[in-house]
Design a protein around this nucleic acid. Structure first.
Lengths: 248, 248
DNA sequence: CGACTCTTTGAATTTTGTCAAACTGAGTGG
DNA sequence: CCACTCAGTTTGACAAAATTCAAAGAGTCG
């Protein structure tokens, strides 16, 4: 965690740099991106389904999630957002958003007007490609979640999610080794995996009993990564990260 | 179905024009896109998970699907592709594909080298934006499928899928009114919705008995659209089509 | 007419959900 | 600093949705 004049902006740069090397001018343009910084409390709405957006929201600190509700009042969490994610970049090319985004923990976010983003993409084609790529990786994660929810049983599903979160957090420098801060409730895990909180609880206890995870409060630590990876049928290819030998 | 010199190329143009108006030069560029046309039989693999792509595949005629298998040998269908879809456009910016694509019916496909696509995007920024937008709509459909599989019970899930297919087919001119050709087996529906073929069969019978659908062989017809829409908790916003009053 | 694949049916089983209540821990205000 | 609250976790007993297995019909194609 190096301290700089704009520490929070590093999240976005770090995320982009996790997949390709930025040229100096590109890096400079990103660090000088006009961004309206805002702090939000937990459980607040960032953007709401059905709205038109004229700016995008970069998550700089904290955890957020995208979600959507069925007509019967049930909620599905579509994605967990971590620092560096642009939580609503699809709003740049879609007229209305088809999902909502809310904070989980207190968050620092930066708003960037769409016109600024369009200008940035026009001037730096490689950044445009990287942003497009980012939305494609998001889609790849949706695909994997679809398999997870559709075709894996509850214990595998949960193990898979834990693997994914650890790897993604590590990719942006928010996990050391096999531990990370994971401020997500069992109810939220349930809403992400199409399960009930009660059942998530039972499965987590089983995973703990089997020594696959060590989860207390907000702190996840994985004593047996390889076992968890197998239990979760987890192959990180879909995350399209640089090769991380420790997790492959 | 107007007959032209390049009838099959119309699928792509028609799809892009379903969301915005192409300028003459853009339209011309698309119709003259160098494309290697190929006919494929049913059940053939178009692209395989884990491969690097140097070209993209436009589906011009027929039905295809994207899918992925779990480590336990179960299959999840991630998307049904219909004419006009570029089935692997994400391969343009991702090094390896994280899913496979295969034909369902006999298909006509057109292969376009990535360099040609990149050149097209560089010269026609609006086409680039439209293609990006297309991948974002694909992602929106993944999100909706995730809710569908995660939080809706089987009968609602199935009704939802039938609504979606009818609306999408109508958007590209492959459905008239409330009927369409839907050459998808119950087993494939099961793999798309995270169910078993046996259960899909039972639910379909119930939907038929309730007069919501009329499904024989490959032909779906919906005698009570509004009832089916409600039964499927279906709101077409996520498809990001032009407003189609008959289905809203 | 086989040889297929796809659909349909029945009965038993499993996974996961539901409901209801107790427990825990972190923060808050008196 | 101690109740008190409140959200989150844990437990138990029961119910429901969907799966599994097995086998019988139907439709299509060479």
């Amino acid at each position: 965690m190096t301290v700089t004049l704009f520490p929070t902006k590093h999240a976005l740069v770090r995320k982009l740099e996790s997949t390709f090397t930025l040229a100096d001018d590109e890096r400079h343009a990103l660090l000088n991106l006009p961004m309206q910084l805002t702090k939000l409390g937990p459980g607040q709405t960032i953007v709401r389904e059905g709205h038109h957006l004229s700016r995008s929201c970069v998550l700089l600190e904290g955890f957020a999630c995208s979600y959507k509700a069925t007509g019967y009042g049930k909620r599905q969490i579509l994605a967990f957002n971590i620092p560096g994610d642009i939580v609503d970049l699809h709003g740049l090319h879609l007229e209305v958003l088809d999902n909502s985004v809310g904070t989980i923990t207190p968050c620092t976010v930066g708003y960037v007007p769409h016109e600024i983003l369009r200008d940035l993409c026009g001037r730096y084609p490689r950044i445009a490609a990287a942003l497009w790529r980012g939305t494609l990786v998001d889609a790849a994660i949706f695909r994997e979640w679809l398999i997870n929810v559709g075709r894996r049983e509850a214990s595998v599903r949960i193990a898979h999610l834990l693997c994914e979160m650890l790897v993604r957090l590590r990719a942006v420098g928010l996990a050391e080794g096999y531990s990370c801060d994971l401020p997500i409730t069992q109810g939220q895990v349930a809403d992400a995996l199409g399960l009930t909180p009660v059942y998530v609880n039972r499965v987590l206890q089983a995973l703990r009993a089997d020594g696959l995870i060590d989860l207390k409060g907000n702190c996840l630590s994985v004593p047996a990564w390889d076992k968890l990876r197998k239990a979760g049928d987890f192959d990180p290819t879909y995350l399209h990260l640089e090769r991380d030998p420790a997790t492959a």
